[in-house]
Computed example of a mutant assay.
Amino acid sequence: MTQYQKAGEAAAALQERLGMQPEIGIILGSGLGGIAGQIAERREIPYGELPHFACSTAPGHKGQFVAGEWSGKRVICMQGRLHFYEGHPLTDVVFPVRVMRRLGVGTLIVTNAAGGVNLEYAAGDLMLISDHINLMGKNPLAGPNEPEFGPRFCDMSYTYTPALRELAKSVADELGIPLREGVYLGCSGPSYETPAEIRAFRMLGADAVGMSTVPEAIAASHCGMRLLAFSLITNMAAGVLDQPLTEEEVLETGERRGKDLERLLAQVVERL
């Protein structure tokens, strides 16, 4: 069975449970799952109850879809994503994106927790992703292409939709929420990067580093979805500060600054 067929079966099972047609998809990163609590008349569907789905094991990731109405729009959230470092092949990591596309979702919003590479950044900053660098060593489109999703060679020039980025910056200005804009570099993890790697990433032009988002962004671009993505800088990357990195710091900063991201996303979603 092809990925397109599997995504169709999962989408059909999900649609039966939802009872509505979502128009916007949202992927919630580490420590940011509280956004799902803002959704009205929500329905929660664990990934494990859907065909062909893998389950999330990462801290701070519940591993379920949450769907309903938010800011006047029909949305479906991934409350917890799948990661390459959990041992999932990238086809499984991006499978939920393809399922949302088969559900009819045309716009995807992605969030993540990231380490600050840019020395002007600080823990707690919000960054609008303008582009990415893939250093995961893998690409979710490798292998036989399924033309039902998209072309064999996928153009990545406008992966992060320019019009949506302009909307996000305008909304942030109106709300008085400082919003940086920069390049996200994706690594495979699960170990944090070394200080030497962070110095190299800075020379490559990266502003933030993390272990997600890049596969989903590639898959979304491949199947023609509009994409908007944000990093919450939960810690400064290795070697920037004289202290070790911990997952507790990531989750704590996510809870502390997640409210600003909630306010920003609520207004963005309302205007889509």
Rank of each mutant, 00 (worst) to 15 (best):
A10R: 10
N235S: 14
G104K: 09
A163Y: 08
G25Q: 01
R102W: 06
F84L: 06
L265D: 02
D242K: 13
A123H: 08
L232C: 13
T213M: 11
R199C: 01
D260M: 13
R226D: 12
Q15D: 10
K73S: 07
Y85A: 07
T159P: 04
Q38V: 06
R152P: 06
S56P: 08
I177C: 12
A172P: 15
N112A: 07
A114G: 03
A36H: 01
E166V: 12
A163D: 08
L185I: 15
Y184H: 12
Y158D: 13
F53E: 00
L264Q: 11
E262N: 09
L14P: 14
A123E: 04
A238R: 01
A208V: 08
G115R: 03
Y184D: 03
P162C: 09
Y121L: 15
I177Y: 02
G63F: 13
E86V: 02
E252F: 15
L164M: 10
E270N: 09
G210Y: 02
Y85R: 06
I24T: 12
R102V: 10
C77P: 02
Y4M: 05
P151K: 09
T91A: 15
S170D: 14
E69L: 09
R98M: 06
K138F: 09
H132Q: 10
R180F: 14
E86M: 02
T91M: 00
D92K: 11
R271N: 11
G224R: 02
Q15M: 11
C154N: 06
T234K: 03
R74T: 11
F149M: 10
A67L: 01
P89D: 00
L90M: 13
E86W: 05
N112E: 00
G186S: 05
M203L: 10
H61R: 02
V269N: 06
P22H: 04
P144C: 00
G224N: 03
R271P: 14
E44I: 12
A123G: 14
A142S: 15
I76N: 04
S191N: 15
T91G: 09
C77S: 04
T213W: 02
R81M: 04
G8V: 13
E249C: 10
P140D: 00
